[in-house]
């Protein structure tokens, strides 16, 4: 993709590296508290629920529900000009209420988007260093 290098890229840090490394391997992992089992996303230094620092990343199913969405028409974001209008979704993962990821819905399913739609993750390899989890409708 000619514009991939212009798009915003993650500044990966020690806290977030496991998420991005797993994505490179086409696995979705979310930080989880080993004391109270609460999932935290984005990753945190201490658990949002119990404040424990015993946090590791665990695989999740990659299935969830579209909680909300928005459709971008404005050429604000470098590298996205050719994709307008594009769709952002807020996915509520099935593992926990309000466990949200921001992502995109598969291009070909843009017309079918709806709140409550069931989705599953797929992985888009942007280049050798970066893979983005994205979602497609399954119901």
């Amino acid at each position: 993709m000619a514009t991939a290098r212009e798009k915003p890229r993650p500044l990966i840090d020690n806290l977030t590296r496991p998420f991005w490394e797993a994505a490179r391997e086409h696995r979705l992992v979310i930080q989880r508290c080993q004391d109270c089992r609460y999932f935290n996303h984005p990753p945190r230094s201490v658990c949002n629920a119990c404040h424990s620092a015993a946090l590791t990343f665990e695989p999740v199913s990659g299935r969830g529900t579209i909680y909300s969405f928005s459709v971008m028409y404005q050429p604000n974001v470098a590298g996205f000009g050719d994709e307008l209008p594009y769709l952002n979704i807020l996915v509520e993962l099935e593992e926990q209420p309000q466990l949200f990821l921001v992502s995109n819905l598969s291009e070909v399913q843009r017309e079918q988007v709806r709140i409550g739609g069931q989705v599953e993750v797929y992985f888009e390899d942007v280049d050798a260093e970066l893979t983005l989890p994205k979602f497609r409708l399954i119901a």
Binding site: T16, M72, E83
Partner: peptide
């Protein structure tokens, strides 16, 4: 015009790479 290429730090890295910035 559009933003120059950027590195999205901290929580922004879980939003901006999907074109969700504004």
């Amino acid at each position: 015009g559009p933003v120059p290429p950027t590195r999205a730090a901290e929580d922004n890295q879980f939003m901006m790479p999907w074109g969700w910035t504004s």
